[in-house]
Design a binder for these strands. Structure first.
Lengths: 211, 211, 211, 211
DNA sequence: AATGAATGAGAATTCATTCAT
DNA sequence: AATGAATGAATTCTCATTCAT
């Protein structure tokens, strides 16, 4: 009689080959999707484009994601998970609004430079960097995060009484466009961040007050 | 059904009906394209969608444009032609950089408000305004125009010695994002323009100098 | 000056090549669908199977029908249009229920024999006739028609007081199964019809009365 | 997840757990298949649908059956095994053809009512009963069984000299269609059976004689 | 020049089946 | 024997583009 505990070896095989293969495939899809979205933009990209960027068969995509949208969301989560702590740290330490702004900008520019280094920002046919796509899950997630933090900071009274909504929009606009320029001109996070910080803090001083 | 302008077949009157019909058909396509791009976005829109928004037959499209891309470019030209004079007037009159900035912003916000009034900005399912699509030929053309003028102005020495490229990027970023917000919150060009002017001029003051 | 009435030659070109080609294509699709449904059954058949049975390109199917369902309905209409007059004539002339039954059965067996002669009933690999498929648009339409007429006749009091619903079901069941058998054994409409008439009229006599 | 019956791996006990587990898995597949076929119809059902209705993994299906077709056949056998004794009992006891007919019809209507009670007959979206699917292994098997018995009975001379083939077809047609109606109207096996018995016996009397 | 049907490549998705574990 | 991920063929449908009329 079999008294040995019957370990069902098929169950939670978390360190096994199967599990590792699954994780690898999921990663392969996400990586391909990141590249494809960056190259073609989210709208233009098709599920086929994503799987073509992979060794996997077409049907395999659907073992992991139901649609392009779901990959998009997974990427957003991914980015948000990586960026949020960076930003959060900066915010925690900030005692003045200037610290907050500079810290956030440093986090942002470091993040996009890092993304690029990881190859997530792609060169075009003439070896020019394709500027960061605005319609990419990456950027959506980052900007949402930033907007939230800015509004939060303004809510805490770190900044003067002004139109918080417009202010957040303006600050994001500055960082986004300057970041874009920076990637085109060549990565120099320090000067880009410094420029933006000066601009945004100056802008804050110059913007109309609410009474 | 032949709803297209009906042509006589007997002559070659180049300044006559035929020419006018051609212009009318071209216009019909451009108008439909504008609406379709605004509603679905450039990527999602198909040539079919454009001709469906027209009384013309599908084949007729190709008598006027080779592809969706070509329509896009034609629209950009179109917009640029309408926006450039507005902007140019402002620039001509400007004696100080502040005048130039305020004038340009007024021109910009008036332009996007006007675009919206013309129905080019669409309400979504919940009757919320869909913010101006950034991936629209309209907006691409406008930003290019603005960038050119800003760089030109900085080149003429109207502004202090600073990173002109970053400055143009920052100013565009501010106008773009705040314009977007404004359309969501409700059109109020005066206050949006004032906010941006204050912000950008303040930003200029705060941004790092070049030595 | 062109005073001639400008006939738009693109409009209702009902006798032209275009129109003839359209009608021919539509017919080709319907014919192929008929064959495919008869061979594989409606459920098993795919749109691809239908277009493969045709010289047309895959996309062309969708110029004529939105789906397999729509072809099915077109075929049903088709059949109903051809069978209804036959049945109707029989019904008009019938003065007794027996006449009605015999006339309807004659019409039915003639119809299915005719369908078969037209090649709509297919031989299998061993050259055996594939019995008429019950799940074919043809047969659905015919049975609906028959059921309607039977219920109508019973409603007019041509038959004794009995369960009209069951009676119609029974009569259809007899005709359907015997027709099926006949096609397998070899077409002999006279004896099949005579058998069914005798059976159904006897069945009517033997079926329980309603009080 | 391993929900399948958990096997010991250490022995070859052919009458033991392993065998019982195998039978249980086979049963689980058959039960799921029965439900799925009844709900979606044989053609529309996929192997995936069947295994989804099971705790088993997809690959396990192929340890028991090679295809959907094989499950179909197994179900037919299954049904035939359950229905044949019922029908056989009736036949054994029958001393007259009338007894045989009534007994068989009772067996048939009891069988389909029973099938329905077991939940094998499904309600549609409007809570109307979906009539017994004719394309189900259940029904195929039942009709084959009935046909065999009828032909056998006629062969034994219990009925007058008539076209046995057509007679069997007619009787089956009546039972099938009336059974279908009954399920739609509401189960009342006694009256459905009585109607069919009267109809078929009357039909037999009325059908043309062979000389 | 305008028409609109035909074309066939391509996209999203599902599914039967295999096979390493 | 059971598992379930991977596979790639098959299916439905759309679309840009061509071309005979």
């Amino acid at each position: 009689m079999a008294l040995a505990v019957n370990l069902d070896h098929h169950d939670g095989d978390h360190g096994g080959k199967r599990e590792r293969a699954k994780a690898a495939n999921r990663d392969a899809i996400l990586t391909a999707a990141r590249r494809v979205f960056a190259q073609m933009g989210y709208e233009a990209a098709s599920v086929r484009d994503i799987i073509r960027g992979t060794d996997l068969a077409s049907g395999t995509f659907y073992n992991y994601f139901k649609s392009k949208e779901e990959v998009f969301e997974a990427l957003q989560d991914d980015i948000a998970k990586r960026f949020r702590p960076l930003l959060h740290d900066q915010c925690q330490r900030a005692e003045t609004f200037e610290h907050f702004v500079r810290g956030s900008l440093d986090a942002y520019f470091d993040f996009i430079a890092d993304e690029r280094v990881k190859g997530h920002i792609i060169m075009d046919d003439h070896d020019q960097p394709i500027s960061v796509r605005l319609d990419t899950p990456e950027m959506k997630a980052v900007f949402d995060e930033v907007r939230t933090q800015i509004e939060h900071a303004i809510g805490r009274g770190l900044a003067p009484a002004m139109d918080a909504d417009f202010f957040a929009a303006a600050a994001i606009g500055v960082a986004r466009e300057v970041g874009d320029r920076m990637l085109i001109r060549g990565v120099d996070t320090a000067s880009a961040s410094a420029f933006c910080a000066g601009f945004i803090l100056g802008g804050m001083a110059g913007a109309p007050r609410l009474d």
